[in-house]
Design a binder for these strands. Structure first.
Lengths: 339, 339
DNA sequence: TTGTAGGCGTTATCAC
DNA sequence: GTGATAACGCCTACAA
């Protein structure tokens, strides 16, 4: 029941605490004989160092804080998966927090993590976030921050992202090459940056094909509820523009909302209208018709983010300089039956 | 940059550390005047107590450990969502770990959490888990354990579950009442307990309708990959039994694999064969045809589990007795177009 | 090679 | 009402 401490070992072996500590950490300046005695007893009593005491002394908690908008999301849960796996490999644990897309909660949670003295923070910022004082605060307290997926341009730190603009360009370019002529865009919100970039990619592709951008073909989510917004906007679009022959949606959820509406109205996909999604979550391969989409690395994004953060943490420890990294992960088109 | 400590406040105000500590914690035996001075300066300097030092002293980390088989799963991510939200309300943080359905990893992770000195552990055990030494170990070290969803019968602790047997009974009973006569069961593995119970519910419903149980109509997942196993078993079943008119699957994933195969083979659901799922994840409402399923509380399961655990933790603090709770959350049938 | 002593920041006990 | 003092368990100069 009672935990055995370094003190207990010390008394039982009549060896000082410091020698015990050194022996257990494999320092060189302990005689082989006493080292063996110590290790043996430690093993026998199932001694494990008290990580809290050691944290207090070393200022390391071997803990990383992660803040995401929501965990109930195929993409984010895969990212977290990657983070937990990678962190564990290096002996780090993950404290997970959700901002629920709210800036005030995000601020509160950063402060919680600071108080908890995590060794580093991984964050995908909320759609509402534009200020950075809370993040700067963490940095000022000596806690490195790494952003992933939804990042802030105006904050200087390592970032793990995809090239949203390029990916969107490729998707729309594909549609145009395939012969679709009048392409609507579903999404087009002004936050987060990803939405903007995907809209820009859409515009670029149109331009590259000599097609004029038509603002009226951009449908913004009214309720921040991808599936239902997709459903709703599909209806709206059909009322307003009968000539649309393809839709590029900013997420698979939106796209699936669209497919659902079209199914209800018996509109054939892709014969009448093609639909392109973004993210490649599991469902997109299973829905009917299966959804063409942009494959976005997720597990990998998590593990790389952790590695970059750990690098920075280790540099800090050794007082070495660390140059922030911006890692752009490759995306690819997955063509299925909806286009 | 440098964190301000209780010592700094003490020196600046010429008041002892102990008084500072008491004042900040709102103890009664500090004069109003000095309390105000202390609080004021603390606020001004943005003082926050060092949680590690306090943990060392109080043996509380305000941290809960959570182990689940996998986070990439609609049900579990909702449960975690509920846990994080509820824990945060009470000032607790969540460390999340995945067992990946492996017993050895589960053991390792329990030990990690013990070492981290979390105040309590929430676990949904892996399919491989039957031994309980690792869990007993946590209890012996004074860390309460609460099980949820996938629980162990042979371990004495609080448990938050659903009545799998009853839920399965209701689903199959519904099918039989609706006129389906020959019903196959997809799932039927011997671990975890949930599978067994759902199989038992299936059997009970048959019996209640005077139908003899036929072992050959039970299809077990060959590869532990619900979607593909459902797909595979649908094919197999069709080859073996042309007279089946309904399937009760143990998860929505399996059911959706089945739907997918039937769609490929142009078998009409529910006209030729009805399909019933289990769990009501988002996808089941979106797939075509939409899937009848058992609604299983998820977010709520997480928040309740946290509450039960915190209750136990608080009782332990006060040395009060705590009676383990077994909370059975209600399920309900959701009837859609697949039946 | 081993041991001593002090400190990390907080809390709790017990005098004053 | 306030303050000295001793833990909590570990780490690390520095001394022996």
């Amino acid at each position: 029941m009672e935990k055995v401490t370094i003190n207990d070992l010390s008394k039982m072996l009549k060896v000082s605490k410091s020698t015990i500590s050194k022996a257990l950490k494999g320092y060189s300046d302990v005689s082989e004989k006493t080292r063996k005695r110590i290790v043996k007893l430690a093993k026998k009593l199932n001694y494990t160092p008290n990580s809290i005491a050691s944290s207090l002394k070393t200022h390391q908690t071997k803990t990383l804080g992660v803040i995401i908008p929501t965990i109930v999301h195929h993409f984010f849960s895969k990212v977290i998966d990657g983070m937990i796996c990678e962190a564990e490999k290096h002996g780090f644990l993950i404290i997970l927090l959700q901002s629920d897309e709210r800036f005030d909660l995000e601020v509160k949670q950063i402060n919680l993590l600071i108080q908890k003295q995590v060794d580093g923070i991984l964050i995908s910022v909320s759609n509402q976030t534009s200020a950075v004082v809370h993040l700067q605060n963490a940095i000022d307290k000596g806690i490195p921050v790494v952003m992933f997926d939804k990042v802030l341009k105006n904050f200087n730190c390592s970032k793990i992202i995809i090239d949203d603009k390029l990916a969107a360009f490729e998707a729309v370019d594909y549609l145009l090459n395939k012969g679709y002529k009048r392409i609507a865009h579903f999404g087009g919100m002004l936050t987060p940056q990803n939405s903007i970039d995907r809209l820009l990619g859409y515009k670029n592709a149109l331009k590259a094909h000599g097609i004029e951008y038509d603002q009226r073909l951009v449908y913004v989510n009214p309720n921040n509820d991808d599936f239902n917004d997709g459903f709703y906007n599909a209806k709206k679009m059909l009322e307003e523009h009968r000539d649309i022959d393809a839709i590029f949606a900013i997420t698979d959820s939106i796209a699936i909302g669209v497919l659902k509406y079209f199914e209800d109205k018996n509109i054939k996909v892709p014969e009448q209208i093609a639909v392109f999604g973004f993210s490649n979550w599991f469902m997109s391969s299973v829905i009917t018709p299966s959804l063409s989409t942009v494959n976005q690395p997720n597990f990998e994004m998590g593990s790389i983010a952790v590695n970059v953060l750990l690098d920075e943490i280790h540099c800090k420890e050794k007082n070495e300089a660390f140059a922030f990294k911006k890692i752009v992960l490759p995306t690819s088109l997955i063509i299925r039956k909806s286009t």
